[in-house]
Amino acid sequence: MLLIPCPYCGARPQDEFHYRGDATVKRPAPDAGLQALYDFVYTRTNPRGWHLEWWHHYAGCRQWVKVERNTLTHEIRTAVGPAEDTPQLSA
């Protein structure tokens, strides 16, 4: 079970969090059109290696945090708040 370093609460076990998925996709502007919304909802790259993900600390501070996790090793490198800059992803 993962140990997620919540930027607000410190390291907490995975079962305090809900997983949402890819945090690299951004909700397009309202006038961006159908295809842009479609990509936002459905199109994912499913990377092997480092990935940026949304996790919700629902049983803690109730903040959505961006977690940099390696999908291969489950290693977690960083976790930041939603408004903070995305850490640089490297393969």
């Binding site: 809900h18 949402r20 909700r27 949304w54 919700h56 629902y58 109730r62 903040q63 959505w64 939603p82 408004a83």
Partner: peptide
């Protein structure tokens, strides 16, 4: 609640 928090915190902070 989780849905609302997602949009409030991450899409329209």
């Amino acid at each position: 609640l989780e849905h609302m928090e997602f949009y409030a915190q991450t899409v329209w902070p």
